[in-house]
Design a protein around this nucleic acid. Structure first.
Lengths: 206, 206
DNA sequence: GACTTGCCGAGACCATCAGTCTCGATAAAG
DNA sequence: CTTTATCGAGACTGATGGTCTCGGCAAGTC
């Protein structure tokens, strides 16, 4: 992500000249988070970020390749919050808490603004689009891992990819279109429906 | 959508001066469709459209409020293709053909390009975003109508909104992220899963 | 057929914004 | 004190959506 330094942490290499200003880096990422949270999804420009961080634009582009990259790095910290699925003893319980946590995260205005801005950026910046792909893939992996944590509860022919995409599909669909809320009730209903799809049902899978 | 004429079809009102050039209108919409289909989702600029249609930019902005509006009007014609659900005798069959048709439409490169460009536009132009909302709402309505066409096959407490959003959620999620194809197999599997979720199952809904 | 009115194509023009370039200042190292 | 790389600041470039202007032309009216 940086220019040519092999490692920021090991000052082993002979390096004359001024070093990277860590305060500036923090100020930039903090400013991004603040501006994104305040913007409510409205576009946040590079100039605004630089201004808010009290930093020159070049200082941003010296360390990040594009605006989308900055947004993503700022977002990375937030991602961890939603993941952490508590290991429950049934698939249904695990799934339910996962969906609930995901929906809850999107209801937090600060998180929602960041996600919305990231999506908007991805529609324009191919670099940001790649990062969104990486991000969403990691979320799918997390969900898939959760599902396979209860192998004995899974129906033999259960199509996990289909289930995962139904969950995140509905999530993003509602999140972006806002035609219907990502409520706790919806989370429960979705988790129930998908658990029924994945798990060995009372009688048969279909 | 136009400037101030109450109705295009009734030339009842005294209207001196040159009339709207229908050829230009067609040329613009055709050019949009062609360019969109060729672009493969890459951005199509207003200048390109005007150039391709052999038209001045002002002629576009005289009749449409924004680029997104032009894209949507061009898209409207295509929407009809995918809708038309044949009235089958079971919910499962109706749903299956609906999903298959929807997925098939997205696999057609020309349609896909238009949809992708429209989404990209919506991320930037609030006007286009409204139009996308209208468009997706009409599709949900169509699906909902299809589901309620077989009331006796529906489970009493079936959450139709959830089912609709699971379907279109997965559709858009896969369509935009492209991590997994909208294949015929996926269509079948999804239809099966949702039919099971909606319909009175062999034993009980949960 | 001349006049009026409003659309037409063409393109100059403007604003916005991502990203680059330059400059003088400054900090870290020899 | 010299060298080197980063810093803040901001001018600049290029792309693009959208507006404005202009000479020309077509559809009516008189």
């Amino acid at each position: 992500m940086n220019r040519d330094d092999p490692d920021d942490d090991s000052p082993r290499r002979a390096h004359t000249g001024r070093r990277r200003n860590e305060d500036a880096r923090r100020a930039i990422l903090d400013a991004v988070l603040v501006l994104l949270a305040e913007s409510g999804g409205a576009p946040v420009t590079i100039d605004t970020i630089a201004r808010a961080a009290g930093v020159g634009k070049q200082t941003i582009y010296r360390w990040w390749p594009s605006k989308g990259a900055v947004l993503l790095e700022a977002l990375t910290g937030l991602a961890g919050d939603v993941v952490s699925p508590p290991e429950a003893d049934t698939l249904r319980a695990d799934l339910s808490s996962f969906v609930a946590a995901t929906f809850r995260g999107a209801r937090a205005e600060s998180t929602a603004s960041v996600l919305r801005s990231l999506v908007r950026e991805a529609a324009r910046d191919p670099h940001a689009a790649d990062l969104v792909r990486t991000f969403t893939a990691s979320r799918r992996d997390a969900l898939r891992a959760l599902l396979t944590r209860h192998p004995n509860e899974l129906a033999p022919g259960a199509d996990l990819d289909l289930i995962v995409d139904q969950l995140y599909g509905l999530f993003w669909y509602r999140f972006l279109l806002e035609h219907r809320p990502l409520s706790g009730e919806a989370a429960t209903a979705l988790a129930e429906a998908l658990a029924g799809q994945a798990g060995t049902p009372p009688s048969g899978p279909r």
